[in-house]
Design a protein around this nucleic acid. Structure first.
Lengths: 208, 208
DNA sequence: GTATGGTTTAACCTTTTGGTTGAATTATTT
DNA sequence: AAATAATTCAACCAAAAGGTTAAACCATAC
């Protein structure tokens, strides 16, 4: 069922290695030879183990989104009230480490491209995320602590803010240089501070 | 000073035409011959009138961001209180027409790429936008109607939400197909409704 | 009309691209 | 240890890429 499980260790190592390259340069910006070099493998091995450039990319996408959704699901599962569910949801997505680090740039490019390269498997994982937040919001509404809002838009707001923020650090640096008046403590947040501030803003906008 | 003003009408026509192509395919995804075809001009004319592929892209970026910032500045200038300034700020950026239509995908890709291709001129226009919102927020805080928050984060939140929403329509469509339970009226908003809902959420999160 | 300047173009060149292949290597089975 | 199957690789290839150029074109001035 899962495309990961019946995959050879070599193939998974390749996917692990090339994820970073796709994240940094984007599908069109990457040369197959770079992928091979990153995976420390001959170009032909990529084709033998996985497939052509497009297939490589699809596999990377699926793997990445499944892991992201799994991580969030794990964190949200054992949270108490709806507010802490939402906070954990945000906290995980704000964390910019491991494989999650590459999710944002890849997804930003996918969105920009109209999602033409997003396989259904990847969309399903996005829907999982959407569902988790939706449940937390519904729970809050039922409990009377949250007002009913457009859950999809709130989801978009959270994900968009976190993805853009995680990815635009180099741009922020330049903006800060160009505008010495800007307070650096507002521009450069640790992922924890980012999560807290985003959660505060979001929650105070949807509380009753 | 402005790179636009001393440009020949031919060159500006080229920039106008190729903006769409860059927006749809991204820098690496575009072939110079496609750009020439889109501008209905020979490939060599691009080089004669403007320059190589990278220069073309830089010019497109500058032009696009300057126009976006100008539009927002115009709308915000003659607004009354800070809330209506913020609402207009959001309304203009939510509008997905004309040149503004291409800003979102291009900027998303730029962010994903770490802004390596963003010329300072383009960053300056982004700073202008940031400044406009910052002023409105400060005004509200001074008047006691808004609480002090991280203005940069609020800016990110607004821009990120609007850019992602404008660009991910095709993905939303597929998500809606995959999840028939989702209410379509939440997923598919007119740009006016989007602006209203985003403004409502943002304002209710920063009001005193 | 024709000389002059800027402008456009078809054809061309070099390098790089994604993709392939048959031989070599390694692992597995008997 | 011989035979067979799975895997990796260096070398190769056709197509496509970005970029250049010399000739043609066209407006204006004389």
């Amino acid at each position: 069922m899962s495309a990961d499980t019946d995959i050879s260790p070599t193939a998974d190592g390749i996917l692990e290695a090339i994820t970073r390259v796709f994240a940094e340069k984007g599908y069109e910006g990457v040369r197959v030879s770079e992928l091979a070099a990153a995976a420390q493998v001959n170009k032909a091995t990529l084709y033998y183990q996985i497939g052509d450039k497009e297939t490589l990319y699809h596999r990377v996408l699926e793997r990445l989104l499944r892991r992201a959704a799994d991580e969030v699901a794990g964190a949200v599962a054992d949270a108490g009230d709806c507010e802490s569910k939402i906070r954990r949801f945000i906290a995980i997505l704000a964390r910019n480490t491991g494989n999650l680090r590459f999710t944002a740039p890849i997804m930003l490019r996918e969105v920009a491209a109209g999602g033409g390269n997003l396989p259904d498997a990847a969309l399903l994982q996005m829907s999982r995320l959407l569902g988790m937040l939706g449940e937390a919001l519904d729970e809050g509404v039922a409990a009377g602590s949250l007002r009913p809002v457009n859950g999809f838009l709130v989801h978009m707001m959270i994900v968009a803010t976190l993805m853009l923020y995680s990815s635009n650090e180099p741009i922020r640096r330049r903006v800060a240089e160009l505008n010495p008046g800007l307070a650096p403590e507002n521009l450069f947040l640790s992922s924890e501070a980012l999560a807290d501030q985003v959660a505060d803003l979001v929650l105070s906008s949807i509380r009753t």
